[in-house]
């Protein structure tokens, strides 16, 4: 990988918590998890050569959020229908907001918890909290980690090597 003065490439996904946002960055030989809060950043590194397992477990958080947003949107639509003659416009703004939240949450797909396991630590990757995205990122990391650990099953054919067939 070409490494200029800028050593990190941002990987998709972000984990939002109360007062911080956590993102994952791809370095030359490690992953860097950056938790940014208002006035600082905390760093955690996972070196490719040390990663033993990446475990993803599907959670129900996304489904529960869909239910909550769905029920609230339905209630607001009901309120609009019930107050047709009077101030139904007042319900429209929150109904649209919740509808947008519902659709965006549904589109992001199922939620999950992703953890990296090394000899020294088991740590959650907060930005890989959606199943589809987590699998995509893990597929992207797999050859990098395997190469760092001396197992090169997906190495490109060396230039000039004869092609079979």
């Amino acid at each position: 990988m070409a490494v200029s003065d800028f050593r990190y490439l941002r990987l998709p996904g972000s984990g939002r918590r109360l007062v911080s946002v956590t993102r994952l960055w791809l370095g030359e030989d490690h992953l860097l998890q950056v938790e940014r809060h208002s006035f600082g950043e905390d760093y955690r590194r996972f070196y490719f050569r040390e990663i033993k397992l990446i475990v993803t477990q599907r959670t129900n958080r996304g489904r529960n959020m869909n239910i909550v947003f769905g029920v609230l949107t339905a209630l607001l639509l009901l309120a609009i229908w019930a107050s047709r003659s009077s101030v139904w416009e007042a319900w429209l703004v929150p109904a649209v907001c919740l509808g947008v939240l519902l659709i965006s949450n549904a589109l992001k797909g199922p939620t999950c918890v992703t953890r990296v396991h090394t000899a020294a630590q088991t740590a959650e990757i907060y930005s890989l909290n959606r199943l589809r995205r987590a699998h995509r990122v893990i597929d992207r990391l797999r050859p990098l980690i395997e190469r760092a650990q001396g197992h090169d099953s997906t190495a490109p054919r060396p230039a000039g090597a004869p092609v079979e067939g």
Partner: peptide, 9 residues
């Protein structure tokens, strides 16, 4: 259900 990605280490 869970997914494990295992590496040589």
């Amino acid at each position: 259900p869970l997914t494990l990605a295992a590496f040589p280490a």
